[in-house]
Design a protein around this nucleic acid. Structure first.
Ligand SMILES: [Mn+2]
Ligand SMILES: [Mn+2]
Ligand SMILES: [Zn+2]
Ligand SMILES: [Zn+2]
Lengths: 147, 147
DNA sequence: ACCATAATGATACCTAGTCTCGTTTAATAT
DNA sequence: ATATTAAACGAGACTAGGTATCATTATGGT
């Protein structure tokens, strides 16, 4: 029987950085642990207030590393505020609930094909896109229903 | 023969505000004239440097009014910087060239239908979305071509 | 001309970063 | 274990995009 050690998410994040040659420092441990404990998305500022012992620049540096590595993704809320959240690796989008703020990942989205067609019609060479989708999640529908 | 007076764009912008009950003030005239003279997109900061006589808050307030009225739209560049530009009224998207920074409006985009289907599959009630498309415009393709 | 109030600019404050620079720390070679 | 050295750090200044407050001014309507 193989003893499977459950690697906490924080260690996974740290390992992700380690694989890219980044050192395992105590500020980075603090940041990854705080992120791993989070539910849903959060702002850099929230993280900062939660970790007063970690320098501001270090928090932003860590966030950047994690975004670049694909472990975190950036989420643009409808009010314009930028949040971060744990990411499914690879390109994807979010269904953001404007009631409760929850976020569902949109994985199998064939928007690429559509954009490729539209771009071609404009003689535009597509290289990337940014998409956020706003609305109400299933749990929040009853609240907004009138009839 | 009807004498058609060419209303400058700046006046149109001011009229748009006027129709909503906003007063025609000299700071607003300065802002709308500066915007009307712009080619393509611009940042709030650029506008501010161009109008040192107008208070910072007033510039941001004016931008907000014009965005809310639909006369201006916000454009998120790939680098994360937010720009403004004169808008075709109504919802639309942009094809943003990462080489020259130009922006083409994407008017007849059927992404709504696609999003509606995808949202329904996630039991999500769609209310809005934000989309920016990045790539190279036709004029910039030769520069990037290798063969 | 007068008046109510909309709008303004100054200022302070906030969020989100970036950059520099002198100090600390982690990985690694001995 | 210790020395080396580059990576990483925190402090602090700076940029950029905003918002909130508030005393003063200007506008539009009578
Ligand atoms: Mn995501
Ligand atoms: Mn537009
Ligand atoms: Zn919800
Ligand atoms: Zn171009």
């Amino acid at each position: 029987m193989v003893r499977t050690r459950v690697i906490p998410l924080a260690e996974q994040l740290l390992d992700t950085l380690g694989e890219q040659g980044y050192r395992s420092t105590s500020p980075r441990k603090a940041v990854t642990q705080a992120i791993a404990a989070k539910q849903g998305h959060f702002t850099a500022e929230q993280l900062r207030q939660q970790l007063p012992g970690v320098g501001r620049a270090t928090i932003y540096r860590s966030l950047k590393l994690l975004v670049d590595s694909g472990a975190l993704c950036r989420v643009l809320l409808e009010d314009g505020n930028l949040h971060y959240q744990l990411s499914h690796q690879g390109h994807h989008h979010h269904l953001l609930c404007v009631e409760c703020g929850s976020s569902q990942d949109l994985l199998g989205c064939d928007i690429e094909d559509l954009l490729r067609q539209v771009s071609a019609a404009h003689r535009f060479q597509l290289s990337g896109h940014w998409l956020e989708v706003y609305g109400r999640c299933y749990d929040c529908l009853p609240k907004a229903a009138t009839g």
